[in-house]
């Protein structure tokens, strides 16, 4: 396995704020890697450390084995799709896409031909003469993608690439980005705060919390076996159970997570709770039980009878659904 990006105890402190705190990370070549976390968790700073817009205050960053800690952004063979796309408003779409080739000194005819190829790749041929202001959000995003890919970067960085699009477009773009990445074989690193996006697109992901990586793994690993309470809570709104509750349910006296979709309402069980809320989800209804200080969400499939708010109910789950977490 070739390593595309490697962080060795990388830190980026802004005064007293530890935006990125001693992070170790390896991203394999050809991976579709997601950095997932709430805002302020350090994921965007990590992306900017790879592109070179931030310099580490400690540690070293390698891209394909070369230490880039002292390399300015314009000399890194890495390109970025910016969150606001950052298209140049005074240039037409073709010149925007050809910009990276223009600053490298490629002749006009050659770079325009190449730009048209890239526009065809993102299905925007015939749009070359338009100005960015005349395009829709989804089209601008494709232009930004084509512009970042024109230099044939070894790593493509995407900062919340789908954040500004509406839901329908976002889902279509997810599939398209994934297909594009597989076709080009370029390493994609993308930042998102949307766990659905990270789980559905990435082949591996890092969950960030307070400047550190809480867990790295495949989407299935992170979803099924969250390493910490934070991960369990952030990825897929899991039930986070305190040690005494875990013990009452037949596990060790440790924090544990239990997915709502693995939890059913039952007549009897070791723990009972009061129904406090019902959330209709279309495919089913999420029922919130309160047992002492803990809230437990259970999924009732569509068509099955629902309890009244205020009713008392127990719950059940398959024994292997209870995931005991090591850390705090």
């Amino acid at each position: 396995m070739t390593v595309a990006v490697e962080f060795q105890s990388v830190s980026r402190h802004f005064g007293p704020v530890k935006a990125v705190d001693s992070v170790d990370l390896t991203i394999a070549e050809g991976a579709f890697f997601a950095m997932l976390g709430p805002s302020g968790s350090g994921k965007t700073t990590c992306l900017r450390l790879i592109s070179g817009f931030e310099q580490p205050t400690g540690g070293s960053i390698r891209i394909f084995g070369e230490d880039v800690s002292r390399t300015p952004p314009h000399l890194r063979n890495v390109n970025t799709v910016f969150q606001d796309y950052a298209l140049f408003p005074h240039m037409n779409v073709r010149d925007n896409v050809a910009y990276g080739l223009m600053v490298k000194g490629m002749a006009k005819a050659a770079r325009h031909a190449r730009a048209e190829e890239m526009l065809a790749l993102v299905k925007l041929d015939r749009y070359g003469d338009r100005k960015p202001g005349q395009l829709s959000g989804g089209q601008r995003q494709r232009v930004a993608l084509a512009r970042a890919l024109v230099n044939e970067p070894r790593v493509l960085l995407l900062d919340e690439p789908l954040g500004a699009l509406d839901l329908k477009l976002r889902e279509a773009m997810q599939d398209e980005l994934k297909a594009l990445q597989q076709r080009l074989g370029i390493t994609f690193v993308f930042v998102t705060h949307d766990q659905h996006e990270a789980l559905s697109m990435a082949d591996s992901l890092a969950v960030f919390n307070e400047g550190r990586i809480a867990q790295i793994g495949t989407p299935a690993e992170v979803y099924d076996r969250p390493a910490t309470r934070f991960v369990a809570d952030f990825v897929g709104s899991s039930n986070v159970l305190p040690p005494e509750m875990t013990r009452a349910l037949g596990g060790p006296a440790q924090w544990a997570s239990l997915r709502p979709e693995n939890t059913r309402l039952a007549e009897t069980g070791p723990v009972t709770g009061t129904v406090t809320a019902l959330r209709y989800l279309g495919s089913g209804t999420r029922v919130i039980l309160r047992a002492g200080e803990t809230e437990i969400a259970a999924l009732v499939p569509a068509g099955q009878p629902l309890p009244e708010p205020g009713a008392t109910s127990a719950f059940a789950f398959a024994p292997d659904a209870l995931h005991v977490m090591g850390g705090a």
Binding site: S51, G52, F53, P72, P73, H74, L75, V78, N79, T80, F82, Q83, D84, A86, L87, F88, Y99, G100, V103, K104, R147, A148, N151
Partner: peptide, 15 residues
């Protein structure tokens, strides 16, 4: 002029 536009220019290789 948004900062990201200046960054985009550098990112694409401009001095």
């Amino acid at each position: 002029v948004p900062t990201s536009m200046l960054e985009a220019s550098q990112d694409l290789g401009a001095t």
